[in-house]
Amino acid sequence: MSAVLELDDVHAGYGPFRALFGVNLSVAPGEAVAVVGSNGVGKTTLARVASGLVRPTSGRVVVDGNDFTRARTFQFARAGVAHAPEGRSTFASLTVEENLELSIRRVRGNSGVRAGLDEAYEMFPALAERRQQLAGTLSGGQQRMLAMVRVLVDAPKLLVADELSLGLAPLIVEQVYEMLGRVRETGTALLVIEQHVSHALKLCDRVVLLDRGSVAWAGPASEAGEHVQSQLGVPAH
């Protein structure tokens, strides 16, 4: 069975700024891979390449066996790659319901929207109470939930989760990771970008350690401890 996502010697950057220097990475179906590393090593850029937001300057991106190097972002999404971006990841000017509608309609069609919305609200009653509220007025944790619910309603092949814990209270982080666990159970592969390593290591099978734009170490999560510690200077657990 081919990998859901494969990056082959990917170089990428923003205009004159280069962020990734020849990264190799693959995610098998149903597998959970954590990408860790300190600030500014290119983790977010890697996530963006994985979901088509940033086009590599050289190298190949393969999704589900098809070459997606030159594909547009929306084609990644249609191929089953979902991306929960860093920071705010909802349409602030749309209501909660409109946010959900936008993604549900694309997958289920006009007739499936109602059922999809009901499922989403069932999962998160808190959102049901706020369905007419503008998403921009939700708290950070609620916005993250909204972004996750969109994914949960229709399980993608791969979820790229970029710094989900950023700026959230510890209790909320627990909840978010609990949800990620549920996403995993549906058979979705995960590419988890994290600065706070311990949660990611608990959840994931494999770990990719980035350093200054390239892969410093990759291996099973169980062996990651000392490498992570030497690289980041923090204990993994």
Binding site: S51, L53, T73, F74, A77, P85, S89, R106, V107
Partner: peptide
């Protein structure tokens, strides 16, 4: 871009 992330 976020719209494209929704497959549109």
């Amino acid at each position: 871009r976020m719209t494209e992330l929704n497959g549109i």
